[in-house]
Amino acid sequence: MTSLKKLLLGEQGLVVIFALAFAIVSLTVPNFLTERNMLGLLQSVVTIGIVACTMMFCLASRDFDLSVGSTVAFSGMIAVMASNATGSIVLGLLAALVCGGFVGLVNGVVIARFRINALITTLATMQIVRGLALISSDGRAVGINDPGFYQLALSKFLGVPTPIWVMGVLFLAFGFLLNRTVFGKNTLAIGGNPEASRLAGVNVSRMRIWIFMLQGLVCGIAGVLLASRITSGQPNAATGLELSVISACVLGGVSLAGGRAAMAGVIVGVLIMGIAENVMNLLNIQAFYQYVVRGLILLLAVLLDNLRSVAAGRRG
């Protein structure tokens, strides 16, 4: 019993749970373990996966970002509108990144410089940005003029769709940033003890602004890919995304109290979220039930986080 507990609550506990779940699902759910379904599954988690990269940094430094869903929708909107207006997809992409980065910058400055609680700040920007998305499109979906835009999501490289590659590259990049750079270590240090980090010479407010800005930029990327996949800019896209992303991170062992995070964990967390949804679709479970399951997964994630901290605390 104790060794089982150690296995489940230890460093690799999540990977074990994931492997188990994957094996069970592969054996029991028809059509699950096929190339087509696997690619579809990965496609479906692209938005969550990409945004989770930077949400991990946010949570690891004891912050929080609720505005990601709105930012994804807004920057997707902007990408479509800007490329329609200028006739250039590249300009559209740049506009989306600038918009995403700007929202992140505002979040960061308000939180770090004016010392407003991150939850409140991003709750506010979440609504403001969603509002801006609705205003700019008059509440309607905006269609894409240039079919080239669809290629972002449709094109394939070595048989794997581009968005999956983008997600993979971001996983690698942010994994490197977290584990192998001063930026990553400082993020974790701030999460562990912000005041001690400041006194140890970490420029805490600048770090926080950077983290939020990166979050915004990454939301921009996710927004573009999402718009391309749904072939339009939708002001109501990605509602509730923030919750799925935070669930995935927490499920992946990122501590809500800050100071603990691992890219591998987050990837597994994202995949668990994806698999749950995918399996429910394959089993033809009604969408209404999926909300319940998603909520249950979040609860389970937080419970696991709690058990894990208790287990870690006992060692001390």
């Binding site: 001063v182 270590k185 400082n186 974790l188 240090a189 999460g191 562990g192 003890n193 005041e195 001690a196 980090s197 006194l199 140890a200 010479g201 970490v202 501590s255 100071g259 603990r260």
Partner: peptide, 21 residues
Amino acid sequence: KLDGIIQGRSIEENMAISSRR
């Protein structure tokens, strides 16, 4: 406890936090 140590991080990281630059 409040201003010195960074809880949850290793001795190594607590030592190198400034000098690693």
